[in-house]
């Protein structure tokens, strides 16, 4: 890292931690930031008018705590409020329920090796892998960050710089007006906006973070609702601009197709066909790609020496995928057909 650190170092980094009623988890986040091999110059916790002791917990750990005059209503709002206090060339956003591997910041700093790099993100893995929902998400992340996201990086267009942990060039971030709350997926909105201005975004697999993922259906449904509506909102907002971004336009089109028509086929067409044709074999379609999914998952798990855990979690992935399809269809119908966009930001955990 030495050669890269000549360009940027930990002293060039400020971390913003947006927090609303995160007293139970923010301490772990702060401690993991303080334990970085490349410690940041400053950690700013934005206490978004929490009802609990989030601010006190953060202050007790010696970090800067800022508090907007009123609740901003979204993570994007809290992060943008915190951006006002940033005085370093690089800004990191970390969710208040997320801890980082000790070398995560050092790896992300290394990605800013050119003036065109505006953002960098790392791998994401659930901190806890216990319930069915956490296991499903664990396999989904292993698959996505081992296979899809690396390919996106090789083609120069990671689809999203993950909201739970990303580093940005502060100037580029400010030029965008910070994080916008015009959609419910502020990370996707920001990433796609950066691409449209010609900026580069990178994915650094070795920079790993561990958020707390929804552990029950209630929390998962809130998160999936927010993500699916956010995706549709971003496609609607950016589709014209994305047409000028090679590879990304194809990746988004394919993702939108899978999220819409493939999901509809998955949820509706497959069971109807099975009934009409009286052939239950068609229901194998729900899991027919299991071996294909397992290959990247096992590769990712083997690197982490977590193969048994991954194998035990695979069935949960198919449950989560089906639920995921349902939420995407619902979001599409609400956003595009019924004209009922989701505006209220609900925490997923």
């Amino acid at each position: 890292m030495a050669s890269l650190d000549r360009a940027f170092a930990g002293s060039d980094v400020t971390v913003i931690v947006p927090a609303y009623n995160e007293a139970a988890s923010v301490a772990d986040t702060i401690r993991s930031l303080q334990a970085q091999t490349t410690p940041p110059a400053e950690i700013i916790v934005v206490d978004d008018c929490s009802d609990d002791a989030t601010g006190e917990v953060a202050r007790a750990l010696g970090v800067t705590v800022v508090r907007p005059p009123a609740n901003t209503g979204s993570k994007a709002g809290a992060q943008t409020f915190g951006l006002r206090s940033v005085a370093t060339p690089l800004t990191v956003a970390v969710d208040a329920d997320t801890v980082l591997a000790t070398d995560a910041l050092a790896h992300l700093v290394g990605a800013f090796d050119g003036p065109g790099v505006a953002a960098a993100c790392g791998s994401v893995l659930p901190r806890h892998v216990r319930t069915m929902w956490e296991r499903g998400r664990y396999v989904e992340y292993l698959f996505a960050f081992t296979f899809y996201k690396r390919l996106q990086e090789y083609y120069g267009k990671p689809l999203i710089s993950s909201g739970c942990f990303s580093m940005y060039r502060t100037d580029a971030l400010r030029a965008q007006g910070g994080w916008s709350d015009r959609t419910l997926a502020e990370d996707m909105d920001l990433t796609w906006s950066l691409y449209q201005t010609g900026c580069e975004v990178h994915f650094v697999p070795r920079a790993v973070c561990y958020p707390i993922e929804p552990s029950c259906f209630t929390l998962m449904s809130r998160q999936l609702r927010r993500w699916s509506h956010g995706f549709v909102q971003n496609v609607r907002l950016h589709w014209r601009g994305l047409l000028g971004v090679p590879y990304l336009r194809s990746a988004v089109a394919v993702a939108f197709w899978d999220a819409s028509l493939s999901a509809a086929a998955y949820l509706i067409l497959l069971p109807i066909l099975a009934l009409l044709l009286r052939s239950p074999w068609l229901l194998l379609g729900y899991v027919i790609d299991a071996p294909a999914v397992i290959v990247p998952v096992l590769v990712g798990a083997a690197r982490r020496r977590e193969v048994p855990r991954a194998l035990a979690s695979v069935p949960a992935f198919f449950v989560l995928r089906t639920v995921n399809a349902f939420f995407f269809i619902r979001a599409l119908v609400a956003e595009l057909l019924l004209g009922r966009p989701l505006r209220k930001y609900e925490k997923g955990h």
């Binding site: 992340y141 390919l151 394919v254 995407f328």
Partner: peptide, 19 residues
Amino acid sequence: MTAGIPGTGVGGLFYLASA
């Protein structure tokens, strides 16, 4: 977040072709 449904549909083919 992961957009789409990983492992199924044309997304899988797209990334296979990309690889």
